[in-house]
């Protein structure tokens, strides 16, 4: 057996097998997926509400105050780093919260962050719908909300699915800063192994490969979905 191989096996054993250190990776991965999943859901809810307020304002001139609040929200969230946002939420806004709420607060922070991007995705989806669809709905006697709900939203949502899936992928990577508030996510897990073995090489490469694998698989799924959606148009 080659010497480098023996060396690799030894390092691998120290990094992942001894003291069950692989658990840092699996537990971290579980937390990363958990945070991403629920943050996306919060993001979709916030994004939906914000986009509806914004487009209603653009189309009818109503909801001036709501629109102004949304504008500030979008400007602040999109104009500051997500790392700063999560630290402000954890160390400032919820400074008195128990440290056992790290994961829920991380979900909240990433959800609020993602909502701003999802809102613009939805708004783009709505704006891409031809104005004639709206007029046709109104001409049948649908009111504004009915037209939005039955005619515009289903088409807008379909337009939004591919960029929404991409937002999910971006968010998956962005959650790697959750370690700054002490969340044991995938990145932090790899870092912790390095800290206790004094060798960062293998754990960091391992987590990089895991992120890469997840992103490639998800991107493939998005591409598949896009093709499906396009075919159902025909």
């Amino acid at each position: 057996m080659a010497e480098w191989w023996q060396e690799f096996v030894k390092k691998f054993t120290i990094a992942f097998i001894n003291h069950n250190r692989w658990r840092f990776i699996t537990q971290g991965l579980a937390n990363t997926l958990l945070i991403t999943f629920f943050a996306v859901i919060i993001g979709i809810v916030i994004g939906f509400i914000v986009s509806v307020i914004r487009t209603t304002h653009d189309k009818t001139g109503k909801l001036k105050i709501g629109n102004a609040i949304c504008q500030v929200y979008l400007a602040v969230i999109r104009g500051t780093p997500v790392m700063v946002q999560i630290m402000i939420i954890y160390f400032v806004i919820f400074a008195s919260a128990s440290s056992s709420y790290k994961i829920p607060l991380a979900i909240l922070a990433f959800g609020i962050n993602s909502g701003a991007y999802v809102a613009e995705i939805f708004r783009g989806g709505i704006n891409a719908i031809d104005a004639g669809q709206f007029e046709a709905g109104r001409s049948l006697g649908f009111n504004y909300v009915q037209t939005m709900w039955h005619i515009i939203a289903p088409q807008a949502f379909k337009n939004a699915i591919p960029p929404l899936a991409n937002e999910f992928i971006v968010l998956l990577k962005e959650t790697s800063v959750a370690g700054y508030i002490g969340v044991e996510d995938l990145t932090r897990g790899g870092f912790s192994i390095g800290g206790s073995t004094y060798d960062y090489t293998l754990p960091l490469i391992a987590i990089a490969l895991i992120y890469l694998f997840l992103v490639i698989v998800l991107s493939r799924l998005v591409a598949l979905l896009e093709r499906r959606l396009r075919r159902s148009e025909r």
């Binding site: 669809q133 046709a136 289903p154 148009e233």
Partner: peptide
């Protein structure tokens, strides 16, 4: 009042 448009405007979905 039914309306028929130049661009049809059928609901695509």
């Amino acid at each position: 009042m039914g309306m028929v448009f130049q661009q049809f405007n059928l609901f695509n979905n």
